[in-house]
Design a protein around this nucleic acid. Structure first.
Lengths: 106, 106
DNA sequence: CAAACATGCAACCAAAAAGTTGCACGTTTA
DNA sequence: TAAACGTGCAACTTTTTGGTTGCATGTTTG
């Protein structure tokens, strides 16, 4: 069961920016990621925590700084769930089309 | 540019339930979709509006009732954006792996 | 036409979210 | 070891969100 939590985590401009930067290979310590988001470091940290709670990201403490790492499995899960919706939907359209075109053709 | 709005729309249990039902081929009038969500019809309508604003769904008025239809293009966009993130991330890991294993091998 | 139906809309409320400030604390490094 | 650095955490404020109730309005149908 895919949780709405995953999408909720991605559903905020600040958090999506963070995820984009991580995927693009940006620095990756909490401090670095917190820069240029237009909010305070503590504010950014709270957003980061939302991503952590949704397992979109996880934290790896190293000495005095903490590395932020993307969790590809969660992204995959989110993507596959959407694929599933699309698949079901397509099937419905196919069925409808067949019906309209004359399912019971001579 | 993919908007966080799409994910925000999916990021709520009630709204995700609505989307799931639509994809699965459930009835599809506002009234039908509003049932069994554990909230009032008006409450459900507000959630539906969020999906409409994010283009996850669109409404087709027919007489006194209104049909709710999934917008597959939006789902596709959401899925492809995630694919893009995964792709970038994979590339980074590949590059890192190559480097660690000895990029400059004799 | 009147009743039943499907829906829209605004006002209001409580809870959650987004962000801030202030301060504490372990880790490097000069 | 003192200062600088990277972080964590709690208290607080302001918006946003999720939900409700009440009522108005167009649409079918008996």
């Amino acid at each position: 069961m895919v949780e709405a939590e995953i999408y909720r985590a991605l559903g905020d401009p600040t958090r999506l920016t963070i995820v984009r930067r991580l995927a693009a290979g940006a620095p990756a310590t909490i401090g670095e990621l917190s820069k240029n988001l237009g909010i305070s470091r503590q504010g950014a940290r709270k957003q980061l925590q939302v991503l952590v709670s949704a397992n979109v990201v996880h934290l790896v403490p190293k000495g005095r700084e903490t590395q932020v790492v993307l969790d590809p499995a969660t992204l995959q899960q989110a993507r596959e769930f959407i694929s599933g919706l699309e698949f079901q939907w397509d099937q419905r359209l196919e069925a409808l089309k067949a019906f309209v075109e004359g399912d019971s053709e001579a």
